[in-house]
Amino acid sequence: MTQKTIDIEVLRYNPEKDYKPSYQTFEVPFADETSVLQGLQYIKDQLDGSLTFRWSCRMEICGSCGMMINGVPNLTCSSFLRDYYPGKLRIEPLSHLPIERDLAVDQTDFLQKLESIHPYIIPKENQSVEEGPFKQTPAQRERFYQYSECINCLLCYAACPQYGLDSDFLGPAAMALLHRYNSDSRDDGKAERMPIVNAQEGVWACTLVGYCSEVCPKGVDPASAVNRNKVNSTLDYFFRFMAPKGAAE
């Protein structure tokens, strides 16, 4: 029996030579269990060693293998070539992000945004080792858990047209993580994070397109983080003179 093959069309871009990106098609043999990522690795190993893309864990953990597959943001390590057969695949780097080379995008903007939201617990008072860890009930944990599942894969940024139209927008994942810390019973950093929420670049650039939550491989539902914070920001706006800063829940 001859091996099945599938055409993979890849967007190539070499910043040293190319004025703009263009497509190149490769014919790739595949089996039932061949992931899209393995298809790309086949190209790199057998057909064209210069093809550039990121990956690491191959198991939906590291978040580095996100790409557009036929126009849809997806993790390539958990997408399979069989699902596209007998059609073909068109693989592009994640939308709305600058292309560094071939399928690798520049993540700097997101990393800076992630840093800006103080993505760590800011306790009211630091506790010494002798005092033991901060305690939390399962019910308290449940309030933020889904938002802590984010693997920074940036599929949601590739899904968000508002981010594409204006990259000043903090964006889905960074807001999901902001919300994750604000909803943590051990955290007391809300006052520091609210100015980001309240800005145009915070929640107000969002029009609830909702595609971010649709493509998220981890069930984070970043759209809910952004839009629940519209309510928080609105309360903060109208009640800021009555309650201490950032006190609105």
Partner: peptide, 15 residues
């Protein structure tokens, strides 16, 4: 780094 990435943030009147 936090400060460098936190440009001037203005409260929006969008609420």
């Amino acid at each position: 780094l936090n400060q460098s990435s936190q440009r001037s943030l203005k409260r929006s009147n969008e609420p």
